[in-house]
Nucleic acid binder design. Structure first.
Lengths: 266, 266
DNA sequence: TTCGATTTGTTCGTATGTATT
DNA sequence: TAATACATACGAACAAATCGA
């Protein structure tokens, strides 16, 4: 006497009617849910740190079982898009200041210790996108942008020089006061003030030499070797939302990168 | 008439006896299985590309349900330790030459194209571990090692100079002929000849200047900026199995690093 | 502070779909 | 074609964390 026997399609107690595995579109249910939820999140309606619908609600809404919702959420958790907390709910992956920092700033002291940088904004100006910036941000050359130069000090010494380019359209109304006043990382700032959630960055690393201007600000000799990091930051949906060129003095600090399993056995 | 109602412990039809969620050790079943399987894999008994026990077998062996085995395997798949193929089985994550390359060599041409390097072995010698190498490989200073210097050419030009240090004990019997004859990456070579599966590397990046020796081999001017990559490669169980110092000429190629979701929606 | 409701976490089990051999 | 092995989906029961009354 096992439950109800099932055919390829059936109608269950809630009026659900589905062919199992492989939907009309040939895409599985949990993947569809994954997409739908991602779309919802990228729309920016859900501010981080307030919860998504509960699993039960999602199951009801999409007319699937809780297990299927969990399968979708498992994926989103693995992709660091949402986090779950037993007893509380499921949240847009955030963005506590130091989680943000830990996640997107792979800078360590030589001995492996992570150091929180202190940020000085050296300049803030409006300008127009050059070819490189336009390409990176998906703009047209000459489109209006904000350009910010930050100096990051670690352990009291200047270590990183950041040249940040933002589309004016995306960050309309940004002013220098906001930057000095902010109590968080740039990415946390984008999120809290503009609803822009950076969840992925792509870094391109080169060896470079310090020119006069950079040498002065980083306090190193002219032509010292610097690590150049060209970064594009993406929000959900692979929307580029920041183009950044950084120059790092790697005498006392280094850029670390782990490839492969992260060995969380918890 | 729903199944059998359950108490906190019970004995099922197969004689299984278990308290639900949170085992004796306070660790969940699927995590225990994850660990056990990982241990089995790291012992090197299972050569890559032959299958692990099937889910059914594992379930029987560990006396748990298939769902629990799948939960454990899901994690191992997410961590790139195993791969599953519908209809075939589950395999130790491998390591086709170009998967290996794609996975652990984040070098791209400026335009984003990946280039397969050609490897020249410049030298092969036995030596003794200096402090740095010993530390990295978990050896004592003075322990015997092999030291290999490789020059990697991309697009016909020398781009990377690799100085590789291997514990002699781990790779006992290694000879230069093996290296020249090999038809794969170094990591593939470690695996096929020594049963050592690299599944994770940690890179530390610095800006450096080309000294005389390196400048000559890389065909760049003295004191040119080079990207220095100090790498430790780990096998299962976090066993360090290779210590490598690389110097990259980044005029035409770059080191790329993606942080955050990889956006596989499949 | 206690307690109960809510929400996710873990485990089990079943049925069926689909790819491989 | 049949057997095998993983993939998807449903649903139930209980554990554990959280939060508010």
């Amino acid at each position: 006497m096992k439950a109800k026997s099932r055919q390829k399609t059936r109608t269950n107690s809630k009026g659900r009617k589905k062919s199992r595995a492989a939907d009309e579109d040939g895409i599985s249910l949990y993947k569809r849910i994954k997409l739908e939820v991602t779309r919802t999140l990228s729309s920016g309606d859900i501010s981080p740190n307030d919860p998504l619908p509960t699993e039960k609600q999602l199951a009801a809404h999409y007319n699937v079982s809780i297990g299927t919702v969990r399968r979708a959420m498992d994926d989103l958790v693995a992709e660091h898009i949402v986090v779950r907390q037993q007893g509380r709910g499921t949240f847009l992956a955030a963005l506590s200041p130091e989680r943000m920092l830990n996640r997107f700033w792979p800078m360590f002291r030589q001995d492996g210790v992570r150091v929180i940088p202190i940020v000085q904004t050296l300049s803030f100006e409006e300008g127009r996108a050059d070819a490189e910036t336009a390409e990176a941000l998906g703009l047209r050359k000459g489109d209006p942008i904000y350009r910010i130069v930050n100096l990051l000090l670690m352990g009291g010494n200047p270590v990183i020089l950041d040249e940040i380019n933002l589309s004016k359209k995306l960050y309309f109304g940004l002013r220098e006061e906001h930057l000095v006043a902010r109590e968080t990382t740039m990415y946390g700032f984008y999120q809290s003030h503009f609803g822009i959630n950076v969840f992925r960055v792509l870094d391109r690393l080169h060896a470079a030499s310090a020119n006069q201007w950079r040498a002065e600000r980083l306090g190193v000799p002219l032509n010292s070797p610097l690590l150049s990091v060209i970064r594009i930051a993406y929000a959900f949906g692979n929307r580029p939302v920041e183009f950044r060129k950084s120059f790092l003095s790697t005498d006392a600090y280094e850029y670390r990168n782990a490839i492969g399993g992260e060995i969380r056995v918890d």
